[in-house]
Design a protein around this nucleic acid. Structure first.
Lengths: 154, 154
DNA sequence: AATTACGTATCATATAAAGGTACATGAGAC
DNA sequence: GTCTCATGTACCTTTATATGATACGTAATT
């Protein structure tokens, strides 16, 4: 099954947007994500509907973040993407009247529900600002590593 | 993405097998599951490799359960199916050198890991015997409901 | 008026689960 | 020994769906 990469992709884009000045066009996003403008527009549509980003047409137009990164969690983004299916495994439903199937699906279903709750609760604890901080921390560490390499070379 | 229904399907088959006497052929399984023999053989192959079921060729052949249902958990079955991917969402990897992507994937990855652990731990607490018990409980409840309906009709 | 950029419909492509067919191999029945 | 049954597995087709790609209408800026 092909995996849904919209959450990963849109987070990537948002963090890049946060580093850039002014609106970012779908075209630029597509280049960053090695995707295409139409796909970016589709993916961003839900975030706009939620008021987290806006899009402007015409010269100087593009996408802009409207709210502080510290106020938005991964769970918000997930919800705004229309809550994509989380699990790659599903229940057969070919025998809806079968009591065996009912028992199996009840057991699997409650396990999935529990895992879903854990995952979404975890998503709710991570803000975009935290992700951005982590990115900058990595930038710092990377710069140091590069410095050390240079030092070693000398 | 198309969901993987092997776990749900194989549990369904195993519980039916437990209710039947003697070996069950792939053909019979396929009828129960509205599938086909080749698919059943493929799915059961991992369980045979683990020694949980055996398959015999020739007259009177078919599949038989080799170990008590109380000794096998959902997690065992999941593992014997070669641990199929659990999540429908994945990370983009188009920009492996990008620190933003690293930060995003680290955050999502640890959330998925946590949810995976919860799900598999939960699977480990449920034995096939428990599932079978639940099925029989449903049978009883269903029989009572039918009795009541009949009483009402009279 | 021309250009830029989004909004969205439509079609194409890629991927993986599952469906299906075929045939070789091995085991019991006669 | 031969026939029939049933598995083991290779191979191809079908189906579902995320994503890629194109096109064109609409709105905003120059």
């Amino acid at each position: 099954m092909r995996r849904d990469t919209r959450l990963s992709g849109v987070l990537h884009v948002l963090l890049h947007m946060a580093e850039m000045d002014g609106p970012v066009t779908s075209e630029t996003m597509a280049i960053i994500m090695r995707s295409n403008p139409a796909t970016m527009r589709r993916t961003m549509a839900g975030l706009r509907k939620a008021g987290f980003v806006k899009s402007d047409k015409g010269h100087g137009g593009g996408w802009s973040i409207e709210r502080p990164l510290s106020e938005v969690t991964l769970r918000d983004i997930y919800t705004w993407l229309d809550s994509p299916e989380l699990f790659a495994m599903g229940n057969r439903t070919d025998a809806p009247g079968c009591l065996v199937e009912e028992a199996v699906n009840a057991a699997l279903g409650s396990a999935y529900d529990e895992a879903r709750t854990v995952l979404l609760d975890r998503f709710a604890t991570v803000t975009l600002a935290q992700l951005s901080d982590d990115f900058h921390r990595r930038m710092g560490a990377h710069a140091e590593a590069v410095d050390q390499e240079i030092t070693h070379d000398i």
